[in-house]
């Protein structure tokens, strides 16, 4: 009797303390959310601002307008619509090719045993440690030889040709699938190709989604390669480079609000995609990379 009473007393005291702690936590979280969301809100508000110029001395614009969005798609100098299309095309193709490559390579390294597998793994590790854009001048020369200079095809190749190197995460995932599955299928007379396509891949939805997500976001937001590869060919810019060029010295003040509109347009789909798919993202990283 006394025992339970004591513990219930303890519990109410404990509960009160816990509530107090929780309130502190709520306050901290709320403050943090405000800090984190503030720039995003500012972005959206700026994109609806009627006044020109880089910024105003007040937070809310005096004149609200949708004109920036209309200007965005009707500008002669910065063909945003075209850039958006370029970005979409490049991202979709790179995503498909890269995902395929990554799955193929990581499956081979994870579940198939062959001579020089270790060598390949080590070489992959070493290659992955060169800074990604270190050799872009050389890659550009190669593209020139193939007649692909300043083309979208060159971008797709750049983003997906080296995709095989990103096998670690997916390999980590494949490692966790029980080997007994393969054994059973082999006894049933399935070839390794059939096992890959018909047994393992259907089981790998999380890692496929993760791979597709990251390989899509990469080209969608890349600036470095486009900026070197496209040079003056503004028709073939992707949104990242295009938006960056809007903030050049000459045009910044005139186009800042349009830039914000463009940023909102490019951010919306990718944000939704990411928020919806975050579960897969976390599973991918924690399941693969973290376990190593």
């Amino acid at each position: 009797m006394t025992n339970t009473q004591q513990s219930s007393n303890m519990q109410t005291g404990y509960a009160a303390r816990r509530r107090a702690i929780n309130i502190v936590v709520y306050v901290i979280l709320a403050v943090m959310v405000v800090i984190w969301i503030f720039p995003i809100i500012w972005l959206i508000i700026q994109s609806l601002r009627g006044e020109e110029g880089i910024s105003t001395s007040y937070f809310f614009p005096h004149e609200w307008t949708f004109n920036n969005y209309i200007r965005l798609f009707n500008d002669d100098r910065f063909p945003y619509g075209r850039w958006l299309l370029n970005t979409l095309v490049v991202a979709v193709f790179s995503c498909i090719i890269s995902t395929l490559f990554i799955l193929m390579v990581s499956y081979a390294f994870s579940r198939l045993r062959f001579k020089s597998r270790k060598t390949f793994l080590n070489l992959g590790l070493i290659l992955g440690m060169f800074p990604g854009f270190m050799s872009m001048a050389a890659t550009y020369s190669i593209m020139e030889l193939f007649g692909l200079k300043q083309s979208l095809v060159a971008l797709v190749i750049v983003y997906s040709a080296g995709a095989g190197l990103g096998y670690q995460v997916a390999k980590g995932f494949f490692d966790t699938i029980p080997r007994s599955l393969d054994e059973a299928a082999k006894i049933d007379g399935a070839t390794r190709s059939q096992i890959f396509w018909q047994i393992i891949l259907p089981l790998s939805k999380p890692i496929i989604v993760y791979t597709a997500l990251t390989t899509f976001i990469g080209p969608w937001t890349d600036y470095i390669f486009v900026s070197y590869f496209m040079k003056d060919n503004s028709d073939n810019y992707t949104v990242a480079l295009g938006l960056y060029s809007m903030l050049g010295n000459q045009t910044m003040s005139e186009y800042f609000t349009v830039f914000c509109a463009g940023a909102v347009v490019i951010a919306i789909p990718i944000t939704i995609l990411f928020v919806v798919m975050q579960r897969f993202y976390v599973e991918g990283v924690t399941g693969g990379a973290v376990k190593g």
């Binding site: 010295n249 000459q250 800042f256």
Partner: peptide, 28 residues
């Protein structure tokens, strides 16, 4: 932010009285 943007900004928010710059900024 660079010359042009700064000058444009300065004159529009009324914080500049004069600027050393060239004809390309005249319209702004």
């Amino acid at each position: 932010s660079g010359d042009n943007a700064t000058v444009q900004q300065g004159f529009s928010d009324g914080s500049y009285a004069a600027a050393v710059i060239g004809t390309w900024m005249a319209p702004a």
